[in-house]
Amino acid sequence: MGSLVVLVCLLFSGGCGDGGGAAGGPERRDIILATTTSTQDSGLLDDLLPIFEERTGYRVKTIAVGTGEALAMGRRGDADVLLAHAPRREKEVVAEGYAVHRRIVMHNDFLIAGPPEDPAGVGGLGNGVEAVRRIAEAGARFVSRGDDSGTHIKERNLWTEAAIEPHESWYVSTGQGMGATLIIAGEMRAYILADRGTFLALRDRIGLVPLVEGDPRFLNIYSIMEVNPDRFPRVNHAGAVAFSEFLLSEEIQRVIGEFGVERFGQPLFYPDAGSDEESLGQGTGRGEGA
């Protein structure tokens, strides 16, 4: 069986590789982008990638997983460039030498959505910790990503800060992406912490309303970083740099800021190239993975 596997690999490694590359295109065409489900489920990447691919001749392989898994791919050198949203974890990955050159790309915010009848009475609160405390007291159903994603980390911090251990009788852990989890929350008429982008994209489908917004803890910062080529010689570093430069370019930052305005009446992401956490109203370490 083992030899068969190798044989089949060899059969297809030629036929399924780069296909020779476009004339005048980059030497290594394929870039593996490990990112969060929110950038894919909201439709942002569907808008941006074709522009990048057409201009540069690169071909981006987007692997949309939770931030935890995306960063793990970076640690193994199995991706070239990482777009994630868990600042503290990202800084660890950079500090440990697995990735380099982390820069903020954009932000949006999280919100707690729930059924319009709001059984726990959290509507209008501006404090996420107080909100989860009330949800726990009411024993109202809460749906969690449970997948070690940036959103899940953010949500767990709320419970930790509220000193509450969620109980299985009302706490549902899906282990799925943002879109799938929102749909489940909608079906269960449950509360959920979601990023605004994916929530708006699905809002009409799921019948949940935004209830808790504006907590400074809810700031959701997306950063890009390249996997360290010194550590992993096999990464496509040139491609990774080209992709980061593209996302941070003035023109694409404008596209990011306009994304979703037509469909939802408000932007889903706010461009932030050149910003740092402090200027986004977030003291170091605050609300980002304590």
Partner: peptide, 23 residues
């Protein structure tokens, strides 16, 4: 796991290609 860059057949760069699906 076998096709990851860090895996034993990583040098083939086959992961996330149609070839990997066929395999």
């Amino acid at each position: 796991i076998i096709l990851w860059r860090s895996g034993p057949l990583g040098f083939l760069e086959l992961l996330y290609t149609p070839g990997a699906i066929v395999l």
